[in-house]
Amino acid sequence: MKDGKLLGKVHILDIIIIFAAIAVIITAIGRFSGTEIIDFNTGSSAQLKYEVTTMAYETAYFSNLRVGDVIAEDKRELKGTIVAVEIVDAVTTIVDNNGDVITNVDPKFKRAIVLIEATGEYKNPIYSVGRQEIREGLPHFIVTETCNLSGIISKIEILE
């Protein structure tokens, strides 16, 4: 090596850059061709149908939950829509003045059961729609242009 040049001809920095360029080209080919030359693990598309049971809200909060509304996340719409909405009684448990445990329909609050169909992603072993993971029992925000209601995923079906 003389003056940083291998065999007096090729500079060592040039070689490093060439290797970097080759790595980038290989990964780019892998990306665009779909072959796993280098695995980026980007996940595959998944068609999901899932049901979210909201927390207990006063009925007025459900006014903007509409069938056909597109689900959203921040400033973008996701590939998914609300396909069914059902308002149901919220059941609550309170100890009464006699010390008895009373479980009955809450006179103040209701819950909504919201069915959503969406194209999400399956990145081994996680299903997700936007940034939210989709798994039964997981807290979930139902976000549309007009709603941001929280609930729990109560059912999930993988369509494909």
Binding site: A21, V24, I25, R31, E73, G130
Partner: peptide
Amino acid sequence: IIIIGVVVVIAGAFWYFTKANGDT
């Protein structure tokens, strides 16, 4: 080669940061 490499990196970065994932 270096110029090609730089162009590929820029194109790759542009694609990565603007990919839509089908969302709007």
